[in-house]
Amino acid sequence: MFFWVIQRDLLLAIRRRSDVLTTLFFFVIVVSLFPLSVGPEMNMLRTMAPGIVWVAALLASMLSLGRLFSNDYMDGTLEQMLLSPQSLSVLVLGKALAHWLVTGVPLVLMAPILGIQYDLPMDALFVLTISLLLGTPVLSLIGAIGAALTLGLRGGGVLISLLVLPLYIPVLIFGSGAVEANMAGVGHDAHLSLLGAFLLVSLVFAPWAAASSLRVSME
């Protein structure tokens, strides 16, 4: 059933490609605006790069969070998920994973190409990609909690960013920190290990928390 949920969400994403592409283009454009506006000063761009790419990834991933449950809520699929013999947490995990495959993975793949604009060295580009690979699933998982809490509320879109962005801060710090540490030559292992720890913790707790919030929102 877990795989049915993923398969279904991917199928829906393929049928509605525009939703996926807007997120990706948003990311590409935001990241590309900075070198254009700041000017071609290599040293400054290099120091700014990790922060900018990470903030853009955060915003891009949040852009699509509103749709995570709201479509299913409006057409009644969510009710059916609550009535499934399968545990709701597992279904939520499936949805969060599908959200990551659709919005997170394209960002991870795009990041090294965008990093070239900032004149990042090869191994920094590599660390940036790995940090995004570990960090973006955390964004989808934590985002699922926010999406579940704001389900069906008016103005939920703004509320979700107020709820979720503060929770994203640790991921942002260690994600961009990994790249900075690599460029400073002090080693990035600690940062990446912490990101991995965030991922494991949120894999265990976020689906459960989101499922409980969904039950409350559906009452």
Partner: peptide, 25 residues
């Protein structure tokens, strides 16, 4: 089966039936 039937606009009738059944186990 409620007022909202859980039918997805973007899926075909066949996919809708198979997926909604799969969700209910």
């Amino acid at each position: 089966i409620g007022h909202l039937t859980g039918t997805k606009d973007d899926l075909t009738a066949l996919e809708n039936l198979r997926i909604s059944s799969a969700l209910s186990g």
